[in-house]
């Protein structure tokens, strides 16, 4: 059992949680993730390790289905059944020169830890964070503190540049040399944004988020195609060379359990409503 040390809401449907997990905290590096199982009957879901402090790690998640909704109900002092990690390979951080770290939506959760690692490796770090609107933008202050420059975009123009992170990246690439780019966000955003860096031949990493079970290389649920070969995202990734990734396949496989996920959520809502009704 792993204790929730602090739980706060960051934005609409986005939550932040510090959990006590020394085995993860003492070994985690930028780019790695953990797997939580909230309760005895729970699913194992992967979440990025977005910050580390002593014996604790931070997770930031968006409620998109049953498990994330359940997780969002936990408060300080509550227990999480299982936390395994750190999993996956750390980000390939070295001294590239100028780096851009781009986070989209809840993917911003992974940005500061990578930006900080890139900064300590001696890079000039440009941060670009984007969300649908100003209210959904998270970790702005944290990013400002660890990046040399920070750009903000919103789809509706309610804050920063009106448009997508990809637009800012393109504008910057036209002005100057960027040596390495990290893009973390929804699959479609990573696909589009990494398409921008391709003609400039810039080393670009994306962090893939296929459906996982064990997270240890044992099942192949997380398999993705990179450069025409099958890789297991949980042990060979989650970061891969963006220009070699088959994003369409990733998106197709993410939809495998759409029907089941809807069913689980509906049942959960019905159940939690009837519970509240009885109170």
């Amino acid at each position: 059992m792993y204790r929730v040390l602090k739980a706060t809401q960051l934005a609409e449907r986005v939550f932040q949680m510090w959990v006590f997990a020394p085995h993860v905290a003492h070994h985690a590096k930028a780019g790695q993730f953990l797997i939580v199982r909230v309760h005895e009957a729970g699913e194992r879901i992967p979440l990025t390790i977005s910050a580390i402090d002593g014996d604790a790690v931070r997770i930031i998640f968006m409620t998109v289905g049953k498990t994330t909704e359940l997780l969002a109900t936990l408060r300080q002092g509550d227990m999480i059944r299982d936390i395994a990690g750190p999993l996956g390979l750390p980000s390939e951080v070295s001294k590239y020169g100028t780096c851009a770290v781009i986070g989209g939506g809840v993917g911003i959760a992974s940005a500061p830890i990578i930006a900080r690692a890139a900064k300590s490796a001696g890079n000039h770090v440009i941060g670009i964070i984007g969300a649908r609107n100003a209210g959904l933008l998270i970790l702005e202050d944290e990013m400002r503190a660890c990046c040399d420059e920070l750009f903000i975009t919103t789809d509706d123009g309610s804050k920063g540049v009106h448009g997508f992170a990809a637009d800012v990246l393109k504008a910057e690439l036209e002005k100057r040399t960027i040596d390495c780019v990290w893009i973390i966000g929804p699959a479609i955003m990573m696909k589009v944004t990494s398409g921008i860096t391709r003609p400039y031949n810039v080393k670009t990493f994306v962090s893939l988020n296929p459906i996982m079970v064990d997270g240890t290389g044992m099942c192949g649920s997380c398999r993705v195609q990179v450069g025409g070969t099958t890789r297991f995202a949980c042990v060979d990734g989650p970061e891969f060379d963006a220009h070699l990734v088959d994003f369409d396949l990733l998106m197709q496989r993410q939809r495998t359990y759409q029907t089941e996920e809807r069913e689980a959520l509906e049942q959960y809502h019905e159940h939690s409503c009837s519970c509240k009704g009885g109170e």
């Binding site: 009957a41 049953k66 079970v213 099942c219 359990y257 089941e260 689980a264 959960y268």
Partner: peptide
């Protein structure tokens, strides 16, 4: 398309046969 490991793990270990009582599909 499943590896047997994935299929068996989902059912034996995560109890997907009892979905949605158990959360893994």
């Amino acid at each position: 398309v499943y590896s047997a490991n994935e299929f068996l793990t989902r059912v034996n270990f995560m109890h997907a046969d009892q979905f949605p009582v158990f959360d893994t599909p």
